[in-house]
């Protein structure tokens, strides 16, 4: 780290307007492929979803689908999905943050590598395989259930079910905690030893360090990670589909059903209205997440 990085003046993003003279065009042309690519495969489909959600199934402008999603069963699905997002974010963010803290501050370099690789696998590719693994562990014939039975605890004596809200929350922990570790570790790593030393030197106890310096620095990142976890559980489809047998109404599953054509055709655009609803809720969580993460990077060098 040289002095140049410290003395750098913060330059706000340059304004994007300006005359499009020949030189400017030359700079922009190589950017065309990615803009067209994003436009065709991302913005165009999302625009179609948005526009269609304000049309009836006959193709006329109508608010019918937008109204529909505020009524059951969709209203209930939104409530369930938001609840699942919140409960999952709460149950995963706290242990995830504590685990990340212990590993980042006490673990060796190689241990941190292993944890980050393992977290990467579980957070990104866990979904479906994890669901099946839980069936193997906690299904009626599951290994864990049989071991517990031998120890004298019959899990299935009561009305336990893996395919319930609680079951889903537990399975989600297995990709949510790793996700928390991935997104929150940089913030812990960014707490410099100099700050502890300086606070101690200025007369602060370790508790005072956390109260005045450590926690205020970690809080924004924690809030951001929480929002990401919410959005992740709220939008998760693969695990939910493998785990539920249609007994819990969740928005992603209902969209899936509408797309699969399991429901009558005159609800085609209801799926798009649901999708718009999902994008809105997801954006409410993700945009603050991205903004906070960006600001926190200022001291996480």
């Amino acid at each position: 780290m040289t002095s140049t990085t410290q003395d750098r003046v913060v330059i706000k993003g340059a304004p994007l307007r300006g005359t499009l003279d020949r030189q400017n065009l030359g700079v922009l042309v190589p950017l065309l492929p990615i803009v067209l690519f994003l436009g065709f495969f991302f913005f165009f489909p999302m625009a179609v979803v948005f526009v269609d959600s304000f049309k009836s199934n006959e193709g006329n402008w109508s608010m019918i689908n937008m109204v529909t999603i505020f009524h059951d069963p969709y209203r209930m699905a939104f409530i369930n999905s938001i609840k699942l997002g919140l409960v999952s974010a709460i149950t995963a963010s706290i242990p995830g943050a504590l685990f990340a803290y212990v590993i980042e501050t006490k673990g060796s370099q190689s241990l941190r590598r292993i944890v980050s690789s393992l977290s990467g696998v579980l957070a990104n590719t866990g979904g479906v395989p994890l669901a099946f693994m839980f069936v193997a562990a906690f299904g009626a014939e599951g290994s864990a259930v049989m071991i517990l039975k031998k120890l004298g605890w019959d899990l299935y004596a009561g009305n336990f079910s893996l395919f319930s809200f609680t079951g889903i929350v537990v399975v989600y922990l297995y990709f949510q905690i790793p996700l928390m570790i991935i997104v929150f570790s940089p913030a812990i790593h960014g707490i410099r030893k100099e700050w502890r030393d300086a606070s101690q030197n200025l007369g602060a106890t370790p508790l005072q360090f956390w109260r005045f310096i450590g926690l205020p620095l970690l809080l924004p990142s924690f809030a951001a990670s929480f929002l990401l976890l919410f959005a992740s559980a709220f939008a998760a489809y693969a695990t939910a589909r493998a785990m539920t047998v249609g007994n819990i109404a969740l928005v992603p599953l209902q969209i899936g059903n509408l797309v699969d054509g399991n429901v009558s055709i005159n609800q085609a655009n209801a799926g798009k209205a649901l999708a718009v609803g999902m994008v809105v809720i997801s954006a409410i969580a993700m945009i603050p997440y991205l903004i906070i993460q960006r600001r926190a990077r200022r001291w996480q060098t």
Partner: peptide
């Protein structure tokens, strides 16, 4: 920011 489910329905239509 966009859930994959939402993008899927967009791609399909």
């Amino acid at each position: 920011v966009v859930p994959v489910v939402a993008l899927s329905i967009g791609a399909q239509s």
